[in-house]
Design a protein around this nucleic acid. Structure first.
Ligand code: SF4
Ligand code: SF4
Lengths: 144, 144
DNA sequence: TTAATATCGGATAAAATTATCCGAAATATA
DNA sequence: TATATTTCGGATAATTTTATCCGATATTAA
């Protein structure tokens, strides 16, 4: 469903969100350790997310990553997914066919449309604050 | 959603199904040409599908691939997907988290469960005959 | 101003996926 | 039986994805 890169991205974002609730900035090392991901690869992902203005970064001592507390309830999981995996998950024929006849779609078409709408809606209506709060209950879920 | 390999596999299977309706056996070349896929790579996929008893193959002149006409309404798209991509699409946390707390799931959990059930159900209730018949209306869909 | 810290950004490398090549094996038919 | 045809199966190659390395840049604090 989502690429490995995207899953790291989601987990990292959720971890940062958790800390940002309490105005704590976290370093690359802390993040990678918390979500059990390769440090340097995680750095690339965080860089991308920072460029997309989903997280903000700061160099130097006491630096690290954070998310503006005010934005926590405004940033959705869908934004993270789109930033990393693009929106190919939501476009085109799920079966990989071409130029399907809209007037005589295959028996699965309507179901696929509905499934993707649900997925899109689920991701779009889940903000970082809401998800992070619920994950507080069991922090270990981010780690293997 | 599905790997490239899996999409080739689905398209190839549907093309064979279309021909098998009329007891026509098709060759590797015909298939690859019809679905616009790399010949040798398609051969590997067909080999796998044959091993999984989804299609049957025959060597030599007049050889090729076919599907027992009687089985056309019994073979589902889900069987094809599982043969090629396995069932990772249906298992584990969609976000890639670990050991989620079943009693206090994240806000997306129930939605993900529902989405995957729908997907699974859609694929499992679509048989080759039904889909192939509908695709007869616009054969070009298999090709770019 | 200097030194220490932490992300940035470009170059590589490893691993997984996708794609190609070619001889072997099986089959039809002449 | 001999030959042409077609899939099988193993080795190899190209591409994409995932992962690592390291010097440059920015920031903090002494
Ligand atoms: S009708 Fe079926 S094959 Fe065509 S785009 Fe929709 S899902 Fe794909
Ligand atoms: S609760 Fe959320 S995070 Fe946990 S398994 Fe379900 S979807 Fe994944």
């Amino acid at each position: 469903m989502f690429s490995k890169t995207c899953k790291y991205g989601i987990k990292a974002t959720l971890f940062i969100a958790q800390k940002s609730q309490f105005d704590e900035r976290v370093s690359l090392k802390e993040i990678a350790s918390a979500i059990d991901s390769p440090v340097a690869f995680t750095a690339k992902i965080l860089q991308l997310l920072a460029k997309e203005n989903i997280i903000s970064s700061r160099k130097g001592p006491k630096g690290g990553f954070e998310i503006d507390k005010v934005l926590l309830p405004k940033i959705t999981i869908k934004q993270v997914v789109k930033a990393i995996d693009g929106d190919s998950l939501f476009n085109g024929c799920a079966l990989g066919l071409y130029e399907c006849n809209e007037k005589a779609p295959c028996p699965m078409h309507d179901n696929f449309v509905s499934i993707r709408e649900q997925l899109s809606e689920t991701l779009a209506s889940s903000n970082l604050l809401e998800v992070a709060i619920n994950l507080n209950l069991g922090l270990t879920v981010l780690k293997r």
